[in-house]
Design a protein around this nucleic acid. Sequence first.
DNA 1: CCTCTAATTTGACATCTATCTATGCAGGGT
DNA 2: ACCCTGCATAGATAGATGTCAAATTAGAGG
Lengths: 119, 119
Amino acid sequence: MSLGIEDVTAPACCAPLSGPPLDADEAAELAKVFKSLADPVRLRLLNMIAAAEGGEACVCDLTGAFDLTAPTISHHLKVLRQAGLIEGERRGTWVYYRAIPAALTRLSGLFTLPAPAPA
Amino acid sequence: MSLGIEDVTAPACCAPLSGPPLDADEAAELAKVFKSLADPVRLRLLNMIAAAEGGEACVCDLTGAFDLTAPTISHHLKVLRQAGLIEGERRGTWVYYRAIPAALTRLSGLFTLPAPAPA
DNA sequence: CCTCTAATTTGACATCTATCTATGCAGGGT
DNA sequence: ACCCTGCATAGATAGATGTCAAATTAGAGG
């Protein structure tokens, strides 16, 4: 398998939600990203990875932080990976995951609002 | 029923994902918000509402934009409402929905990253 | 009061998903 | 060569979710 960056073929990008209409394809691609965030365990995993020292977290540390089996954590990491939010790398015995900054920044931009009407 | 702002009892708020660890409760509350965004139809609905002239959209217009029945659209709007992303108001025969700016801004802040290491 | 339309609610159903157990694979150490 | 550990995959299952048809509520207007 490949733990690297998934081919998400992210098409159009980055226009805010308050902007031009999303077509069905853009909406479907974005929905996949949000589906990956729509689980408390995955949110905490991404949080732990994004906040980790050195910018990366070992799966061995992630697994221990939940009352879940290793295959379940592995599944959640795969979902985040396939959404294009994280990438993984094996180094010897252990696998390390890292957040993909551009993906997070893109989401931040999605929710920006136009400046409110001036007084 | 109430079409107004739902009591989401949003607890802690706004620390970026790259920040301090999310506890289970915060993660669950956030996951609910992302669950509401994890559907292409709801994303397009929120997009249409947030981008609408005058900041609000009539359900009658939203319903016609999809190849789905009115109950299905109503269901999706309810999910967005219960996530605290939109609020609705009945005026005479029609119901109008509006985005809740603070909720969107909060999400934007969630994905902000610390400044990269300087050269 | 009756009817018509807009929107929501309810109930049913097919599909998807989070989790587990069992298994497979890769690397390290002996 | 062997085993042990870390992680991923496969298969199974209970529960969540998107959709529709049918019924219900709210308001406008005869």
